[in-house]
Design a protein around this nucleic acid. Sequence first.
DNA 1: GTACTGGCCGATACACTGTATCGCTCCGAT
DNA 2: ATCGGAGCGATACAGTGTATCGGCCAGTAC
Lengths: 230, 230
Amino acid sequence: MVSGMLVWERPEPPDRPVPAPLSRERIVRAAIQLADADGLDAVSLRKVATVLGVRPMRLYGYIASKEELLDLMVDAAHAEIRPVGEGWREVLRSLAEATRHAAHEHEWLADLLGGRPQLGPHALASGETVVAALGDIDVDAVMPVVAAVNAYVIGAVRREIAERRAERATGMDEKRWQASLGPYLERTFATGRFPALATVVRDAAHLDADETFRTGLDFLLDGIEARISG
Amino acid sequence: MVSGMLVWERPEPPDRPVPAPLSRERIVRAAIQLADADGLDAVSLRKVATVLGVRPMRLYGYIASKEELLDLMVDAAHAEIRPVGEGWREVLRSLAEATRHAAHEHEWLADLLGGRPQLGPHALASGETVVAALGDIDVDAVMPVVAAVNAYVIGAVRREIAERRAERATGMDEKRWQASLGPYLERTFATGRFPALATVVRDAAHLDADETFRTGLDFLLDGIEARISG
DNA sequence: GTACTGGCCGATACACTGTATCGCTCCGAT
DNA sequence: ATCGGAGCGATACAGTGTATCGGCCAGTAC
């Protein structure tokens, strides 16, 4: 009981805000929302907490560090990566395309992919699907094959997103892109120090992002096929 | 002239510290030294300035932002990547191995590779070497081939370094590694949700990092060979 | 020799970060 | 009715990248 004041005189306790119900899932969703909108740099524990109507330190009841939050985000993204198809080649291609697709919807994924080992349930689940589809392949060959495809996808997606960002940074349309990077390359090539590069960049047909990705993936899958069936 | 005091009475002006001679090269070397020793997170403009015996804001006379410093670091690393060999296959393999080697000496490179377009002089130089060695290949095929190899290397190196760090984080030796991640995977596999994965992880032969990298690279180069010579 | 001026340097400041610490409050068990 | 413990949040700390701006200095024009 508080002092001698009667209830009638005592004011009500200040409206203690109803504690927002919290969960890892909510936290991760909020973080992803921020990252989708404004990039990975926009994800800070304070901003996430604000979005959730919560004080920052509350989050530490659910995660031990920001790194863990990023891990959870990546695993959440893996939930959207569901390889399908029949036969090892189709499944691997599906894995690659689905990963790329996810990175298109969540560009921050390009910054995180491959940055730490993926051991979350969703990542393992998609791994399981892939490995299961490779059942007709020599057991000892499965890991190297999956690792190779994953490596290619990680690198290809990173490069692609990096280029996309660079283009956007120059002003979003292709005109300004050619107006800023084009001239730089022109001037650089004009020095004559990179003749072979200059020739290829100027004379060769330029594939778009889709074609580039698929071409590289086909190289890899062809190489795999040759070895495992041989 | 300062007031009426004679020289003899007037103290010397305070030892104005000799301004440390500065250059992008020095700045980048200092940053790389920090990153080699303690990782990318240890690279801050303040720390770099301290190493150089300089105040932080001075650096902005040489670079416009920290991102530019990171770009310069990456290009400096590219200076150590000099692909050699005869014929397109040897050169591409050399490019891949040299990049991996650089990332072993500068682990931070794994965090930066592929993160932004590489247009620095050293990156272009190694690109020139590679493209020049692909002279006997159809011009339109050069870019996709180089892009594919680069993508694979970026991803493979990232994965490899990420794993190495995870191992180190558990205590550096293999015993503790098995004592921390092993049990996690064991418990996870024990749930029976990932049977195919469990089988492969448990029963298949495990390649070491060198073998894994080379196997994937061979897949890719084989696939390339099949297409360009066919 | 003197006045000016333009450029560089550095101190300070700002807004923000991740997270350690720790007192308070409240709930549930005894 | 009392105690214990857990969780919450305010505060604090050490650090970040960088904008701003006052002042010093070198060089130039007379």
